[in-house]
Design a protein around this nucleic acid. Structure first.
Lengths: 339, 339
DNA sequence: CTGAAAGCGCTAACAC
DNA sequence: GTGTTAGCGCTTTCAG
C-alpha cells in the first residue's frame, strides 16, 4: 500500500506536506504542491481514510435510517439526502429499521461506533437516541419527531393537510368517510387521523364514529385487511381517507375486488401512488414533500456536523391543498415517481 | 472516549485481553472474559471501528452501486443485499450512479479509499473496475455484466424470457409487435431487445421492421417520447414489448392518452409495475427476480470477502415464463411490491 | 492463556 | 512555509 511517506520521498518533501496537500486547508508552496500531486499520480496514491478518521475522529458518512426502504416515499427522501450529501463530500449508509426499535438501536450502535458524521432518522414509536446524543453524534429526525428528544426535526404538515384532503371528499358529495391510518404511536399515523377526525367533526358537528377510524401496519397486506373490515361494516363508509401510499393502494385493491372503485366509493391517498395511470378512477392524491423533507434534513444535519450549536429546530413543510400544482391532484395528473 | 485501556484497567486485565474478548476469535479464560464484559458495560464501551480498521485494513461496509435508487427494481435488490449483509455483520453504503460512468467512478474512488469490504455494482456501459481490482477489493456485478472484466456476475435470463414474453403477445393474437428498450450498450436493454427480435423473426420469418425497435433512457419521460414515436408511425404497432418497468409505465400512459389501452393495443412490461391494481387492463408482466439477484450477489460477495479465490463465476437466474407462480402473470394478480 | 510493545497511515502541534 | 514528532485506539506478534 502506498502511503504519504512514499509520496513524500518521491516528491522530495516531508510527509506532513503531503498530508497538507491532501487535506486541503493548509498553505503549501505551489511548486511543492505540484510535485506532490505528480508523485501521487505516479504512485497511484489513494489516502487511507481509516487512518485519517482515526486521527481526526470523524468520518464523511451519514447514516440514513428509514422504516421501509421499499416505500417510494422513503426512497425519494433518501435520494434527496444522497444528493446533498454527495455534493458536500459525504456518503450515505442506508439502514432499514423496519419500524422496529430494536433493529433501529442495533443500527445506532454501529453508527456510533463507526462513528458516522451524523444520522438522519425516521423515528419509530420506541426510538432511543441516547447512544448518539451521549457521544454527540448529530441527529436530525425526518418525517416524524422523536418522542422525548430535542433534536432538529423536519416534518410535513400532516394534520392540516389531512383535514383539507378529507374536506375535499365532503365537497365531492361523500358523506360517510372512513380513515385507515398507521400504527398507534407513529406520528404521521396519529396526526393524519387527527386531521381526518377534525374535518369530520367540522362537517357533521360530532366526533367520527369510532368504527370508521381504523389502524393497520403501513403495508398493503395489512391495509387490505383493515379496509375489508371497514367495508364489511353494517353501515360501510362511502369514502376512505388512506393515511399513506401503501394504505391507499390497499384501499384501491379491496374496492376493486368488490367493484366499488371510485367514484362509487371515494378515495384519497395521502402520499403519492407510484407513477402509473389509473385514468378511469377519480382517486385523490396528496403529494407529500418527500424530496424537500430529505433536502432539508440533510442541510440541517450538515450544519450540525459543521458545528452549529443552536437549540433544536423544528421545521414543518407545508402541504398546499387544492388547485393546480398544489398538494392535491387527480392521480392521472400526478407528476414525479412517488411522493 | 472510553478505550480498551479504560476497560482493561477496570477489569484488571491487559488491553490485549480486552481486544481479544471483543474481536472474538481468541482464547480468554471465562472469568476474565466476564470481567471484561462487565467493565465494558459499566463504562458503556463501544469499540472504535476506525482504529480496528486501520490495524486490520478492512471494513464491514459493502458499497452498493445502482443506476437509479428510485426504481423499485433496484430498491428491492438493494433491500435483499442489505438483508444478507446485515446478517453477516456488514453495513451497506448506497450509491446512486445515475447510469453515469463518471459518477460511478467517483464512487469507486471513495469505495476504494474507504476501503469497503466489497462492492456490488450494476454496471453501466462505461464501467471501469481497474481501481477496485488493482487494490483487490472484491466486486460482483448484478443485473448486468461489466464489459471487459472477469468478475462474479449474476443476471436474469433476459433474452430467453423476453422472447417468451413476446410470443405471448403473438399467442394473444397481436401481429405487429414493437419494442421499447433501454440505451444502446446497456446489457439488459440489448438482451431484451434481442429476445424480442428473436421471437419476431421466429413468428414472421423475417427480422423485425427496424422502425419497431426503439431505444429510450430507462425513464418514464423518455419512454413516453419513444412510445409516441412508435404510435405515430404510418403503420403503428398493435402491441408493445416494454423492456423494463419504467418503459412499461410509459407505454401505458401514452396508450391511455390515446384511448388505446390494452387489450386494444397489447402491452408486456418486462419487470413488475408497482403494486397497484389495473384490473380493467390486460397488461402482461414478467417478474424479474430482483430479490434473488440481490441475495445471490451478496452471498457471492461475502464468499469473496472471506477469501474465496476461484475464477469468476457467472450465474443466470431463470425467469420462468407462463403458468401460475411463474414469470409472467396478469398484473392484477401481481404479488410483491415491484419486481 | 496473558501481557508488553510495536506499529497501521495519517494529522496537528510545535519548532524552525 | 515546512519538517519533526507524537500519538489516535486497536490488533498482533512475541515472550513468558
Amino acid at each position: 500500500m502506498v502511503t504519504i511517506y512514499d509520496v513524500a520521498k518521491r516528491a522530495g518533501v516531508s510527509p506532513a506536506t503531503v498530508s497538507r496537500v491532501f487535506s486541503g486547508h493548509a498553505n503549501v508552496a505551489q511548486a511543492r504542491a505540484d510535485a506532490v500531486h505528480e508523485a501521487a499520480r505516479e504512485l497511484d496514491f489513494v489516502p487511507n481514510r481509516n487512518a485519517r478518521r482515526l486521527r481526526t475522529n470523524s468520518s464523511e458518512i451519514i447514516a440514513m435510517m428509514v422504516p421501509d426502504i421499499e416505500n417510494p416515499f422513503f426512497t425519494l427522501m433518501t435520494r434527496a439526502v444522497e444528493d446533498v450529501a454527495r455534493e458536500a463530500g459525504f456518503s450515505v449508509m442506508l439502514c432499514n429499521t423496519n419500524e422496529d426499535p430494536v433493529r433501529e438501536h442495533e443500527y445506532m450502535r454501529v453508527a456510533v461506533s463507526e462513528p458516522v458524521a451524523g444520522v438522519i432518522l425516521v423515528p419509530s414509536p420506541g426510538t432511543n437516541l441516547d447512544l448518539a446524543l451521549e457521544r454527540s453524534v448529530p441527529v436530525v429526525c425526518a418525517d416524524r419527531h422523536a418522542l422525548g428528544y430535542e433534536v432538529d426535526t423536519v416534518v410535513a404538515d400532516n394534520k392540516d393537510s389531512s383535514a383539507s384532503a378529507t374536506r375535499l371528499l365532503y365537497d365531492a358529495g361523500y358523506e360517510r368517510i372512513a380513515c385507515v391510518t398507521g400504527p398507534d404511536g407513529v406520528e404521521t399515523a396519529d396526526m393524519r387521523m387527527a386531521g381526518w377526525a377534525l374535518a369530520v367533526q367540522e362537517h357533521t358537528g360530532a366526533p367520527p364514529d369510532p368504527c370508521l377510524g381504523i389502524r393497520a401496519a403501513y403495508t398493503v397486506e395489512d391495509g387490505e385487511r383493515a379496509v375489508r373490515l371497514l367495508m364489511d361494516l353494517p353501515q360501510p363508509p362511502d369514502a376512505i381517507f388512506a393515511a399513506n401510499n401503501r394504505l391507499g393502494a390497499a384501499a384501491l385493491r379491496v374496492l376493486n375486488e368488490r367493484g366499488l372503485l371510485p367514484p362509487t366509493v371515494g378515495v384519497v391517498s395521502f402520499g403519492g401512488l407510484p407513477l402509473i395511470l389509473l385514468a378511469p378512477l377519480g382517486v385523490l392524491i396528496t403529494h407529500l414533500p418527500a424530496r424537500e423533507l430529505g433536502h432539508q434534513a440533510a442541510r440541517m444535519l450538515l450544519e450540525r456536523i459543521n458545528g452549529l450549536a443552536a437549540p433544536a429546530r423544528s421545521v414543518t413543510l407545508p402541504v398546499v391543498v387544492g388547485g393546480e400544482g398544489s398538494g392535491i391532484d387527480m392521480i392521472y395528473k400526478a407528476q414525479g415517481s412517488a411522493e
